[in-house]
Amino acid sequence: MPDPQILKLDDDFTLVKRFIDGEESAFNQLVVRHKEKVRNIIYITINHADFVDDIAQDVFVKVYRNLHHFRFESQFSTWIYRITINKCKDHLRKIKVRRMFIPLMDSFDKADQFKNETEESDTSKIVRDAISKLPKKLKIPLLLKDIEGFSYQEIAESVECEIGTVKSRIFRAREKLKFFLMPYKTEIFK
């Protein structure tokens, strides 16, 4: 994973102001500063590398459209991560709906494929699959904390809930994850 860039609040605000004043290149700088973090959040949330860039680009298009309405009340990064997480949720919702309409044979194929994949001995894959089984509201705070290293405060702002709720959800996510990984205990926790 690339090292997270050190972003300063003031720099983001300056770039946003410059963009609002008509300097289009300021937006490109914002993209460069935040794209990796956005892509990573998407990747860990949807657990699929194929769609990451599409969703990330959607996120930045939305940011581009709405940047004139940015109110400078929260950090720019918090704002963009909130948009990212919402886009991920939309994507997961779409996938869920699409699965309901997949023809029977296809779903068998997918199931087989899934089975084959899970039978692989790659422990990372096992953990990722176990995480993907977590409900969204538990999975996202857990990933933002354990993978992206967000503080509880940042997670609370990104997923729009209280810090206490974040604390509780992360603990519950860990408990459930432990349960899912129980069959692979010996392989994973060596």
Partner: peptide
Amino acid sequence: LKKVNNSSFKQLPESPYFESVL
């Protein structure tokens, strides 16, 4: 558990055409 989580995701490959597509 935290350690396992942290190491479960590989580094995401870079996307060289990201900006131009955007």
